[in-house]
Design a protein around this nucleic acid. Structure first.
Lengths: 216, 216
DNA sequence: CTGCCGGTGTCAACAGTGTTGACAAACCCG
DNA sequence: CGGGTTTGTCAACACTGTTGACACCGGCAG
């Protein structure tokens, strides 16, 4: 009953995802989305309580790109590593998508799927559920944190990012060596290589600690 | 020469920090700050190019609370641990302060001070500058990530946070065990204890990996 | 069939936001 | 005293999320 719906959560989220992919999350506003859908902005409030709820749903939808199907014979730590790297890459693929996901867990389909895959791999490693939960939290914090920190620079593209990193190194190097001996000494090595490499090394360190039963 | 200034970066930032401490960063707007200072909002643009620049400066100012003076005879890993925990606590102390700091490094006074202290401790451990830089990145990513993830819940206060965590556990527990065996099995142990405890365990795992020269 | 109930989209409006360009006040220097 | 310069004021623009009244229109009951 009622007037036939021309909108649906699916159609709305598809259009919203399109906007986010091409223009970044900052371009996603009620009016912009309305014009894309050919409807009044206020119509969106018939399907979502908030723009915030809509944003969370779009954020989760974009997480479909994270692959979680475990490959046969793959060791647990390779699975975990692959998922975390994929998750981080997906978060960085769209400008500031990380903003939509960080904070409270959404418990939406894709997030649940990724959590299940991570925990399954951790349990497969022989950890008991409590230890697996601790490891899960540590891995997610590192992954989301890395994505949040790198989001702005990653949005520039790799060429521009390299220039930005060089600028930062120079800024640190130019500090007074008397006052900041460690920082000036290490300046040359800060923000070296790609952010992805730095993340993977941190991830490997954490995974090694996990495999030795350090955490939990 | 020129009209005598009634505003200054110091006075502006002090008022802004006051607003952030009492009402959270969302309350910090040009108009709100102007009314606090008894001046027109547009006057702020004589002292900062952007509201974004102003926010970064305020964010850095609030980092004064992070203690970095190394205690005599303190082992390097205790120093690192203390600074990271203090940094995370400070970021969580003000509603969404983490938002102001994450992203690009500001290279403002307090951030430089904290970076210097962290790198000094890492160099003291015997790492070479390149390894210290890698360790620094890993530690900062974990710390900022933890703060970013916990920000919303931490703003509720510890009592309400416990209830929120219980709700999440219940949501995960109620999932279909056929489809999500690992998640339902570990649900009981997710978001257990305080977020600070979870962070410290992750931090310890990372520190242990560092001390064994895993990273870098 | 009529009439109404209720879901859906439209419209106008409110209260915010950051930001800019023209203007005026107030000082220093020549 | 008359510029020149800095600093704050004012009004305006282009946005944002959100709400309440209204109109549309289908299915169901009488």
């Amino acid at each position: 009953m009622g007037r036939p719906a021309s909108l649906s959560r699916d159609r709305i989220e598809a259009a919203a995802a399109q906007i986010v992919e091409t223009e970044g999350v900052d371009a996603l506003s009620a009016r912009r989305l309305g014009s894309e859908l050919g409807c009044d902005p206020s119509a969106l409030y018939r399907h979502y309580t908030d723009m915030d709820e809509l944003r969370r749903c779009v954020g989760d939808r974009l997480l479909v790109a994270v692959r979680t199907t475990a490959r046969v014979g793959e060791p647990w730590d390779r699975t975990v590593r692959r998922i975390c790297i994929d998750l981080r890459r997906t978060l960085l693929a769209h400008r500031r998508l990380a903003d939509l996901v960080q904070g409270a867990p959404t418990r939406l389909p894709n997030e649940v799927r990724i959590s299940e895959a991570l925990l399954a791999a951790l349990l497969r490693s022989g950890l008991d559920p409590a230890q697996a939960a601790g490891a899960y939290h540590a891995l997610v914090e590192l992954t989301i944190g890395s994505a949040a920190i790198d989001a702005d620079v990653a949005a520039q593209g790799t060429r521009a990012a390299a220039g930005t990193y060089r600028t930062w190194r120079n800024d640190y190097r130019r500090l007074d060596p008397e006052q900041f001996p460690a920082l000036t000494a290490a300046a040359e090595h800060l923000y070296r290589g790609s952010a992805a490499d730095r993340f993977e090394r941190a991830l490997d360190a954490l995974l090694l600690a996990l495999s030795r039963g350090t955490l939990g």
